[in-house]
Amino acid sequence: MEAADIHIIERCKKGDSNAQRQVYARYSSMMFAVAIRYTNARVDAEDVMQEAWIKVFRHIKSFSEHNSFEGWLRRIVVNTAITHYRRNQKHQFQLDIEEVHATPNDFEAFKEIDFTKDELAKAIAQLPKGYGMVFKLYVIDGFKHKEIAEQLGIDLNTSKSQLSRARRYLQDVLHAMSQRAKKE
C-alpha cells in the first residue's frame, strides 16, 4: 500500500470527513459494481452501497495497513450484499434446483467467442438466486466453500453442489448465446 493511501486511511481513522470523501471518490465505483452484481437491481444496490460505506467508516479503525484496502472494502460490500440477500430471502420462494437442465461440459464452444463483461453479467444474473450467490462468491470474489456455507447459512456440501450446478447452468446459457451469435 502506498504511503499516500496509508495517510488518507489514518486521517479517516481520526474522523476526517475530507479524507473520507477522498476514499469514497476513489473506491465508490468498484463498490457499486460489486453491489449491483450481487443484487441484480440498481435500487437494492444503492441500499447495499450506502450500508456498506457506513460500515467502512465506522469500522475503519480495525483495518490494518498490512492488508489490501481494496480487498477489505470488497469484503465489506459483499458481506453487506449477503446480509441484504438473506434478509430478502425470507420473503422469497427458493427456486427448485432441479429446474436446471443438463448442460454441455465442453467449454471450448464459448471460449472461442469473446463475451463482453455485460454479456457475462447478464448470463450470471440469469442464474437461480442460490446458485448465483455461491457462484459469484466462489468464482469472482474468491470465497472458500466453508466461508460461503457460513455466510449463507447452508451446508458445506450444498455450497459445493450449487457451485457445480451453477457452472453447468451458466455454460448452458453462454452456449445458447454463442449459438445465437453464430446464427446472426
Partner: peptide
C-alpha cells in the same frame, strides 16, 4: 475466465448516494 472479466469492474454510482451516506 469469468474472474478475469470482473477484475476491474467499476460502475459510477448516482451522485445522491454520496450525499445520503455522509
Amino acid at each position: 475466465y469469468i474472474q478475469s472479466q470482473f477484475a476491474d469492474e467499476a460502475i459510477t454510482p448516482p451522485q445522491q448516494i454520496e450525499g445520503a451516506i455522509f
